[in-house]
């Protein structure tokens, strides 16, 4: 019996370790590469941890004009033409991601409330929302490009915000719906009995109770928006740049992708997600366990 238990424990721990390695390796590789000098980026055998750490890649991210200077110092014919500034990309991503998250969560909350309390659309309506997510984005990209050019939305912040909001709304509705579902209707009923209208009762009673859920949904949606590449690629043309587009910008004609610079940009771009996550961590734990706690 005891032997069996030890054996099971070992197996479980091994599984956890494998999962952790699987999850953390890309992050480790991203950070590690971002500090590697040029000639170590694509070495074989790979260099796990560089002996010559450098901030060169980060400098190029923020001061693209340094790239040419750097290229001149290298042996061989390096063409270090870096287009666009990281600042611009961060600004673009911040505007689009934040706005689209707010819109998605705001409308998602209202729609979810309506579905839960008024059974809007009938029993299967929430599932219909999810089917939107079953369509691979690539399938709708071409029609969207056409539509956006007709509507003159291409390469505008507004256009990209609209696209992101539309694509994340099903997630918002689906997630927030489960949180609102957990709030007994009687609580709002009690508020209404005491003289509040339905919407005011929702704002004063229900909203504070699902705050954690809404914030964790917001983080989730924000990550989706922040890391989105396909729509950003096809719906913009240089005016609006996002971090994911900027990562793809770090290529040179002669040496292919600038892995180190891309890694540096990637490392920096994960920071907002971590900061935002840390800020609302208290609520996320509550949000993620919301349904699990018995009233």
């Amino acid at each position: 019996m005891r032997k069996q238990k030890t054996w099971q424990t070992v197996l479980k721990r091994t599984a956890v370790i494998v999962a952790a390695v699987f999850a953390f390796f890309p992050i480790y590789w991203l950070i590690s590469t971002s500090f590697k000098p040029f000639d170590e980026w694509a070495n074989w055998p790979p260099i796990w941890l560089t002996d010559n750490p450098t901030l060169q890649n980060y400098r190029i991210v923020f001061f693209p004009e340094l790239a040419r200077e750097f290229a001149a110092q290298q042996e061989g014919s390096l063409d270090y033409k870096v287009s666009g500034s990281a600042w611009n990309a961060f600004k673009g991503s911040a505007i689009v991601s934040v706005a689209a998250t707010i819109i998605s969560v705001a409308f998602g909350t209202l729609a979810a409330y309506s579905i839960v309390r008024f059974k809007t659309g009938g029993k299967n309506y929430p599932f219909q929302f999810l089917t939107v997510r079953m369509v691979p984005p690539i399938a709708v990209v071409v029609p969207m490009v056409v539509l956006f050019s007709i509507l003159k939305l291409s390469d505008t912040y507004f256009g990209l915000i609209l696209a992101y909001s539309a694509f994340t709304l099903p997630f918002s509705i689906w997630m927030i719906r489960s949180f609102i579902d957990d709030v007994p209707a009687e609580l709002e009923g009690a508020a209404m009995i005491h003289g509040m209208g339905q919407f005011r009762a929702f704002l004063t009673v229900t909203l504070p109770l699902v705050k954690g859920g809404i914030l964790s949904t917001a983080l989730f949606i924000f990550i989706l928006n922040w890391s989105e590449f396909l729509f950003a690629l096809v719906l913009t043309a240089g005016n609006v740049v996002t971090v994911t587009l900027q990562v793809a910008n770090y290529v040179s004609a002669s040496s292919g992708k600038l892995y180190g610079v891309q890694a540096a940009m990637g490392t920096i771009s994960t920071l907002p997600v971590i900061v935002f996550g840390y800020m609302i961590q208290r609520h996320i734990v509550r949000g993620l366990t919301f349904g699990a706690i018995k009233r």
Binding site: P184, E186, L187, G189, A190, M192, I193, H194, V205, P208
Partner: peptide, 19 residues
Amino acid sequence: PVQKRRIGLVFQDYAIFTK
């Protein structure tokens, strides 16, 4: 509407605002 009826109601589960 509910809020204009001036009716008091005690729910089966009381619906106390727990926070």
